[in-house]
């Protein structure tokens, strides 16, 4: 016995060491290869993008500052007008924020139902869980611009197409995040409620929602931040709000740069403001949960 272990020990250490080294070598080789592929993809991707762009990267690089400089210098010359311009575009700003808020609200309600109907243990019709999951997958996959452009054609320009488009995407996106939370809910409360004869809606409202509300609200606020940006962008393709005004102001070109500057400032201010407010509330919500 002792003899065997004595002669076996050094050998096994050696084999362990050599197999460890081989493993390390192989891992290094794999990571090296992955890195190489990644670098090749980045470089060739950059070259393709550069080729297919109207202006080249290296030619454009030193012009990056030109447009902001023009806008800023003109805005600075006419700085006395800026407050008046900002007041003029304030209704557009309200519209952009409203689009984001309504679509977040509608999307959150839709996402709530989709997630509850698509979560095991909570669903009203357990057989239809895959159906509701696919529905929310598809709603999440559709970029807002697709629905917005089609609806603009049918409904005409304005805030409604953007609102519907963002709401649909929001419902899908939130449904996924919500169902990740609701999968971890404690089912005891639901069982207790169902023993009293509560309906499905009552079980969800009284048994599930109080458990998940902080997380849901936190995700919804995060979505609201994203949707403000989305609603500004959709304005640029024809749905109303600040983005629409920005496109018009930009189409005027030099001479009206003060308008563009006013809109830039408004948009920047709004995004930063709502980011700060929402992140403060989100921190408070998640803090309250962990303690």
């Amino acid at each position: 016995m002792a003899d065997i272990s004595l002669s076996g020990a050094p050998q096994s250490v050696q084999t362990i060491q050599s197999s460890y080294m081989a493993q390390v070598q192989r891992r290094r080789l794999y990571s090296g290869l992955t890195l190489l592929i990644f670098v090749i993809l980045m470089v060739s991707g950059f070259n393709i993008a550069d080729d297919r762009n109207a202006g080249g990267f290296w030619n454009g690089l030193h012009q990056v500052g030109d447009y902001p400089a023009d806008v800023l210098s003109e805005a600075w010359e006419k700085r006395a007008d800026l407050p008046a311009l900002m007041a003029r575009y304030f209704p557009a700003l309200i519209e952009t924020v409203n689009i984001a808020a309504v679509s977040t609200l509608i999307g959150a309600i839709g996402g709530l139902f989709l997630s509850l109907l698509g979560t095991r243990g909570l669903a009203k019709w357990p057989r239809l869980i895959p159906l509701f999951r696919r529905i929310s997958d598809i709603m999440r996959a559709v970029p807002e611009i697709v629905i917005a452009l089609v609806l603009i054609f049918v409904l005409g320009g304005g805030p409604v197409p953007a609102m519907i488009a963002i709401a649909i995407h929001t419902a899908g996106a939130l449904a996924k995040m919500f169902s990740e939370v609701s999968e971890n809910t404690d089912l005891k409360a639901v069982e207790g409620l169902s023993s009293t004869g509560a309906t499905w809606l009552q079980r969800m409202l009284l048994g599930v929602l109080p458990q998940v509300a902080p997380n849901y609200v936190s995700y919804t606020l995060l979505r609201f931040e994203i949707n403000i940006r989305a609603s500004a962008i959709l304005g640029f393709v024809g749905a109303g709000g600040l983005g629409y005004e920005l496109r018009n102001a930009m189409a005027w070109g030099p001479g009206r740069f003060d308008e563009a500057a006013a809109i830039f400032i408004l948009l920047f201010g709004t995004i930063v403001f709502f980011d700060q407010v929402s992140s403060r509330y989100r921190n408070r919500l998640t803090d309250g949960q962990t303690h």
Binding site: A54, G55, R229, I271
Partner: peptide, 28 residues
């Protein structure tokens, strides 16, 4: 970080399109 995030992709796109012209590089 706050600044580049706050300016948002929309404004960056508009500004960069002036320098680089339309195309995938500007979007990237």
């Amino acid at each position: 970080f706050d600044f580049v995030r706050g300016v948002d992709a929309l404004i960056w796109t508009v500004v960069l399109a002036r320098a680089f012209g339309p195309g995938p590089l500007t979007g990237a």
